[in-house]
Amino acid sequence: MKALFIGGTGTISSAITKQLVEQGCELYLLNRGNRNAALPTGVNLIQADINDEAHVAELIENLAFDVVADFIAFEPAQLERDYRLFKDKTKQFMFISSASAYQTPLSDYRITEGTPLSNPYWQYSRNKIACEDYLMKQYREHGFPITIVRPSHTYDERSIPLGVHGGRGSWQVARRMLANKPVIIHGDGTSLWTMTHNSDFAKGFIGLMGNIHAIGESVHITSDESVTWNQIYEIIADALGVKLNAVHVSSEFLAACSKVDYRGGLLGDKANSVVFDNAKLKRLVPEFVATTRLDQGIKQTVAYILAHPEHQTEDKEFDAWCDKVIQALDAAARSITE
């Protein structure tokens, strides 16, 4: 198989890149080269900015692919560019959408690919929906061979997956745990969530590549494991070897008092219970099974981050904000009970 990835070094795509190279795929990555140092041997690099359409067109003029996948498209205009570049150069075009595009709030917590797409809380999700609409139009009217993939919360060894963190990543929450400081959990922590290790996501994605039954289809790829946010934070604390000191805070309150977009990330996504039905993926890729249990994956991630200080990015602004939120709640409680 000959494939081209636009991107290829992110949380989701890096695991796919690794597994494809191990399987002998002729893989090309088109990116700006900022994160290519850790790529496995055997990857063919096309260094360019995908937004420079004319330059990219020159670079791929004599190339054609079995699969082209765009991991970094977020708006319809970017897919319009991809269509112009690749409409005659690939047998399958794969777009990475988002499970946050599904109906929010849900009318049924069990999500299938037939669940409506609607998210009034998050522009990011609405943009992904618009991208899907554009691609389906090209498939219906021009036969453009598209496959839409919807990941949910996918993680790797470089970042601890969380619900509430600052703009500089999740390490500061781990620091708070290690210092026995209170850690904010949105809502009451009992809503169900699904996290998927990127190595498991890669297995499903690769199974869709070159799969004639996936053309014209939308498919989500997630683990079958459902956990509550309380369990998630307990798993992280356990991996760090500390006792969790949790404070539960309304998602609406967090969205109202933060500069970070918690309205989209919480109210439009993580505040809602979600359970994914992966039956469609398993019909298309019968061998797919997610094998990394969350507690196992989190232990691997925590161990990696503790051993690699470059991934321990402090966020003093977020740390101070957490203290303010908790102090405000304590003060409000005292004012009512006094």
Rank of each mutant, 00 (worst) to 15 (best):
F5N: 06
T9Q: 10
T17L: 05
G24L: 04
G24R: 11
G24A: 08
Y28P: 03
L30K: 15
R32M: 04
R35G: 01
N36S: 13
A37P: 00
V43W: 10
N44I: 02
A48R: 12
A48S: 14
I50L: 14
A54V: 02
E58C: 11
E58A: 14
L59G: 04
I60R: 12
N62P: 00
D66Q: 15
I72R: 14
F74S: 11
E75K: 15
R81P: 04
L85C: 03
F86P: 07
F86D: 04
Q92G: 10
Q92F: 04
F93W: 10
I96L: 13
I96Q: 06
S100H: 07
Y102Q: 07
P105A: 05
L106N: 08
S107Q: 10
S107E: 12
Y109H: 12
I111C: 10
T112D: 01
T112E: 05
T115Y: 07
N119S: 11
R126G: 01
K128H: 10
I129M: 13
C131Y: 06
D133C: 08
Y134K: 14
R140Y: 00
F144K: 11
S152M: 02
Y155R: 14
E157D: 14
I160Q: 09
P161G: 09
L162T: 11
L162I: 06
G169A: 10
S170N: 09
V173T: 13
R176P: 03
L178R: 13
N180H: 14
K181D: 00
I185W: 05
D188W: 00
L192R: 15
M195A: 14
N198Y: 01
S199M: 06
F201S: 05
A202L: 06
I206H: 07
L208A: 04
M209G: 07
M209I: 00
I212R: 15
E217F: 06
E217K: 15
S223T: 15
D224V: 02
E225W: 06
W229K: 10
Q231H: 10
E234I: 01
D238K: 15
A239E: 04
K243M: 02
K243G: 01
L244Y: 09
N245S: 08
A246S: 14
V247H: 08
H248N: 11
S250Q: 11
E252K: 14
K259H: 02
D261I: 03
L266S: 07
L281I: 02
K282V: 00
K282Q: 12
L284K: 04
P286N: 10
E287N: 13
F288N: 11
T291G: 07
T292D: 02
R293C: 03
D295T: 08
G297R: 11
K299R: 15
T301F: 03
Y304N: 12
Q312V: 00
E314Q: 12
F318T: 08
A320Q: 14
W321P: 09
C322E: 04
D323P: 10
D330L: 14
A331E: 12
A332F: 09
A333S: 12
A333K: 15
T337I: 05
E338N: 14
